[in-house]
């Protein structure tokens, strides 16, 4: 087995990468100076088979973060007990350093049949949806026996009835459940870019300013992880799609620096799901995140001096 020396000093954030099928062999056979690997929980929901053997091997090399995409924590039809139990079993077997899912809904009834969207669908931000999410997050945390991280969403349409801003909603969720936030900076940028298309009557705001304002409204104590990614713009009249198919964008790198300065040494993950690059290219993105973190925290030390 490879011995992977991790040289992350205690005052720097843990930096990880998302593990996708195309990188399984590389992750096992190529030394990588990363602190953790994020896996999508649903890829390992099968009762047995090669995936578990792989995950056992991966776990011997790296710390693992378990990122779920199917609980639908904002669903009025709550996730089945079996689904939560499968996630709990995975957590019990592989002892992830973090478990996360999204501020979205996935379950709903169609013609009296409970259906799963297979996607992360938007919720309005109001008292009713807050209560639903609080109940679902508390239930998940009870079964998982730990607090979870909840990720902000990129959205392509909005449901009516919001009485809170997204950040107000997420902060209230943290206050009421003890959960923390997985702040996906790319999702904020995507929403910022799409904002002027979804709300054409509103004043245009630069994505960077929109995102900084968003980050400023989240208390540092509620942030448990950051996601960084890139995505593809079709054209200016089309909504931007959060496809994780590109390198981390310049805007997201700028905002990452801003977020670290604001939130401290928060665990950080590079996501790249489509148009998968080489393993080395992905690791280079993680290295870049490390360099930015070193710069931010070196600067902070200078300020304290």
């Amino acid at each position: 087995m490879l011995s992977l020396k991790k040289d992350t000093p205690i005052d720097l954030p843990l930096i990880g990468v998302g593990l996708r099928h195309g990188h399984y062999n590389d992750a096992l056979n190529t030394p990588a100076n990363i602190d953790f690997i994020e896996i999508h929980a649903e890829n390992f929901f099968a009762a047995g088979g090669a995936s578990h053997s792989l995950l056992t091997d991966i776990r011997q090399h790296y710390d693992v973060s378990l990122h779920a995409t199917s609980l639908g924590l904002g669903s009025t039809s709550p996730a089945p007990q079996q689904q939560l139990q499968q996630l709990a079993n995975l957590a019990s077997s592989y002892q992830p350093i973090m478990i996360s899912d999204h501020a979205c809904f996935s379950w709903a009834d169609i013609n009296s049949q409970t259906v799963h969207a297979g996607d992360l669908l938007p919720i309005p931000f109001n008292d009713e949806s807050l209560q639903v999410m609080v109940n679902n997050v508390l239930r998940a945390q009870s079964i998982l026996k730990r607090t979870i991280l909840v990720e902000n969403l990129s959205v392509y349409l909005t449901l009516s009835g919001s009485t809170y801003t997204e950040t107000e909603f997420l902060v209230k969720l943290c206050e009421l459940t003890g959960c923390k936030l997985l702040v996906d900076i790319n999702n904020i940028v995507v929403n910022a870019i799409n904002h002027s298309l979804i709300y054409p009557g509103e004043e245009t705001v630069l994505p960077i300013d929109y995102a900084k304002n968003w980050l400023n409204n989240i208390p540092a104590k509620y942030v448990g992880e950051l996601h960084l990614a890139g995505c593809t713009r079709v054209n200016e009249e089309q909504l931007m799609i959060d496809d994780h198919a590109q390198p981390v964008s310049a805007d997201v790198w700028t905002l990452y620096q801003y977020a670290l300065a604001r939130f401290g040494a928060v665990a950080t993950l590079i996501e790249w799901d489509e148009n998968l690059p080489s393993w080395q290219t992905l690791l280079a993105e993680a290295d870049k995140a490390k360099e930015i973190a070193k710069t931010v925290f070196a600067a902070k030390v200078e300020v304290v001096k």
Binding site: S75, S77, A108, D109, I110, L121, N126, S129, V132, G161
Partner: peptide
């Protein structure tokens, strides 16, 4: 419209 109906209708449309 209740949240429950909103979610059902969006999922139906999708």
């Amino acid at each position: 419209m209740t949240l429950n109906k909103q979610q059902s209708h969006l999922l139906s449309a999708i």
